[in-house]
């Protein structure tokens, strides 16, 4: 059944969109990730213009992360104060990102830049995760107890000025790295249409030393607000948010996430991570393929507004 996307101005199959949303929702429930980094490339593979895929991806992330954030809020595993500082940085980063996004779009380099960012980030994160999880699986087979290396209690980040106390996280840390981290994630959110959880969570654990139990809730809280802000700004500056497309993805995603979460309980942690890493690497390779292989048509057209 065809459905017309008013902003993308094209007809697509509604079942493909629902399936796409459900599949990504399933994976996001399975691995506990937002899924934005899968939705946007999938939409691009489905010939949705990258500008619309990115902005609509941000909109979809709002729905999937709000569900999760709500659960953490009820359980109290959410540091509102830390989240607020993060999102203050996030708003700045996102605004900057939107500006760069519009600029790249005018220059005709947006598609390239989005693909490059995806290839680099997904390639790096996926590669590191893969190596780590394969080692963990090997160690488990050999019967070696995973050595819980506790990283040093303090690093250079904890020597920066402007310290602030975050009670829920039992943390006394400078707000500079928190703001910078928030801004970096906000920037990625607006250019890549991702929530950024896959970078935010490790950064909070290893750089800021936030206790693991509040990390996911706090990062989700920040992602909800920054993605909502990104959606609104994309809608006003670029008019690239396709609400019909977003709805189809959200409906599929919300349903898929529940089954994914159930399936996730049956798999072991390192196996899950190895699976996720392979998936992330596969997406990165697929995007890289388009970058490096000669395109079938070297020319492209883009309509211009009034000159």
């Amino acid at each position: 059944m065809g459905i017309y996307l008013p902003i993308a101005e094209m007809s697509v199959n509604i079942f493909v969109l629902l399936a796409m949303g459900a599949a990504v929702g399933f994976l996001s429930g399975l691995f506990g990730v937002g899924g934005g980094f899968l939705i946007t490339p999938l939409l691009i593979f489905y010939n949705i213009p990258p500008a619309i895929a990115v902005a609509t991806g941000a909109n979809q992330v709002v729905a999937s992360s709000f569900s999760g954030a709500l659960a953490h809020f009820k359980r109290g595993t959410l540091d509102i104060k830390l989240g607020t500082v993060l999102l203050a940085g996030g708003i700045v980063g996102s605004t900057l990102g939107i500006y760069v996004f519009s600029l790249l779009r005018q220059m005709g380099q947006l598609d390239l830049f989005v693909s490059l960012l995806y290839v680099i980030l997904l390639g790096t994160v996926g590669g590191m995760m893969f190596v780590e999880s394969v080692n963990a699986i090997r160690n488990a087979r050999r019967g070696v107890n995973p050595s819980l290396k506790r990283p040093g209690q303090h690093n250079w980040i904890h020597r920066l000025p402007l310290k602030m106390r975050f009670r829920a996280s039992k943390l006394f840390v400078s707000i500079i790295p928190v703001l910078v981290l928030g801004a970096a994630i906000g920037f990625l959110a607006s250019i890549m249409g991702v929530g950024g959880g896959f970078i935010m969570v490790p950064a909070m654990i290893y750089l800021l030393k936030v206790p693991t139990n509040v990390v996911i809730g706090t990062s989700l809280f920040q992602i909800v607000v920054v993605s909502a802000y990104t959606t609104i700004v994309h809608a006003t500056t670029n008019q690239t948010v396709d609400i019909i497309l977003a709805m189809a993805l959200m409906v599929g995603g919300v349903a898929g996430a529940q089954y994914g979460a159930k399936a996730g309980q049956k798999l072991r942690g390192e196996q899950l991570r190895a699976l996720l890493a392979s998936l992330v690497l596969a997406v990165a390779l697929r995007l890289a393929y388009d970058l490096f292989v000669r395109p079938p048509n070297l020319y492209s057209l883009s309509a211009l507004g009034a000159l």
């Binding site: 909109n59 729905a63 659960a71 700004v233 006003t236 008019q239 959200m250 919300v254 349903a255 529940q258």
Partner: peptide, 23 residues
């Protein structure tokens, strides 16, 4: 476009909330 963006975000929040209620 501003109202559209706000509406899109609110709709997403609502969908996320509804999804949690249902499942």
């Amino acid at each position: 476009s501003l109202f559209y963006g706000i509406f899109a975000s609110v709709l997403a929040v609502f969908t996320g909330w509804l999804g949690r209620i249902i499942f």
